Amino acid sequence: MGVNASSYPNSCSPRFGGHSQTQQTFIGTSYAPSQGYGGESKLYSLEHGMDKPQDKKKKSSSLATLKRRFIKRRKSGRSADHSRQMRELLSGWDVRDVNALVEEYEGTAALKELSVQAGLARPEARTLQQDLAALYQHKYCTDVDLIFQDVCFPAHRAILVARCPFFKTLLSSSPGFGAEVLLDVGTAGMDAAMFSSLLHYLYTGELGAEDARLQNVDVLLRLSEEFGTPNTLEADMRNLCEHMCYYDSLLSFSSDSELVEPFGATGPPPGSSSVSHSIPEEELRAHKAVLSARSPFFRNLLQRRIRTGEEITERTLQTPTRIVLDESIIPKKYACVILHCMYTDAVDLSLVLRSSPSAGSLGEVQALVAGRGCMSRAEEAMELYHIALFLEFSMLAQG
């Protein structure tokens, strides 16, 4: 079991080995001349002293007239250019073609307005990077404790192995759940704060701004020599999804309305990356870190197991967690689509399993009873949308 340590501030700023990104907020302030009590404010000039009221009124009137002329000329010029271009374009068109163009413009404007309103009506979907940043901050379902300078950093073995050659070599000799690994880092000047920023980068692909030393090119070169240079976060997570090394959970599906005990154990030790082990065909490998980071449904389920003490038993027996899902709620045919989206932020409907009606989802069976045959892509997308709402997985719902 890992010992929770105080987490360091995490914020996303310059990329490790990339370009820095800075966000600034400009707050405008308006200034209005103060008015004297009982009278109008006076305009003073350093060269000519106080202007007469008549001169002031005349200058203001002239300036306003000139401004109006400029605006009128600019508007008329733009309008004339636009109308001339449209006349030249439509001079040889038939009336029906012009009406079709007008309808196209009106439809495009309506779609744009609908898109804007839809964006305002729903919150923006959280990305993989944002969810992994929250995972590093809150330490959900950690399976290894890194000890550096007497500070404990609970972490996730699969993410470290997939992202960093240094940790891939180091953790291969400590396959057990909850192992404590003492770190001996050779980079000069490395302290706990910098090490936390380094871990933050491995989770998010961006370096934390709390340690300005990481913006130094020489420091980045020394870190690259010792830890290696990772690929992009997207590429490493896609590779993790394909190979499922260090998996620590198995998704199983039950057609019964009443689930069996979901906390059994099966399969080989999750530290092995080999795919030749005997695992039931209906079970899919996954990582608890990714499941808990992307879906509050899975996070609450796994956190409840930790509170009841069942997590300790699995760590002792070196067995992955089996999560049994009711197929009438989450059909197995969509499991690959859901997992792929969790690791890549992409919804690929080509991953939907095409199977016989007896092994299909509840929606397929209902469709066959109604005489509609197999479900269309649109119907599958709508079913996936409702599954995403149940899992509280916003990227899948909006993808």
Rank of each mutant, 00 (worst) to 15 (best):
H82I: 13
S83F: 13
Q85T: 09
W93H: 12
V95H: 04
L101E: 04
E104V: 03
E104C: 03
G107F: 02
G107L: 01
G107I: 01
T108F: 02
T108P: 00
A109P: 00
A109C: 04
S115R: 02
V116L: 07
V116Q: 05
L120K: 00
L120W: 00
R122C: 01
P123Y: 01
A125V: 02
T127P: 15
T127V: 05
L128Y: 01
Q129W: 02
L135W: 01
L135E: 03
Y136V: 06
H138L: 05
H138W: 01
Y140R: 14
D143F: 13
V144W: 06
L146K: 14
Q149M: 12
Q149L: 13
C152H: 15
C152K: 13
P154I: 04
R157I: 06
R157C: 03
R157H: 07
V161M: 08
C164H: 07
F166G: 05
F166R: 09
K168Q: 15
L170Q: 14
L171M: 12
S173D: 15
S174I: 11
A179I: 13
A179P: 14
E180H: 09
V181Y: 04
L182F: 12
D184V: 08
A188V: 14
G189F: 10
L198W: 15
Y201L: 09
T204R: 05
T204S: 06
T204Q: 03
G205T: 07
G208E: 02
A209E: 10
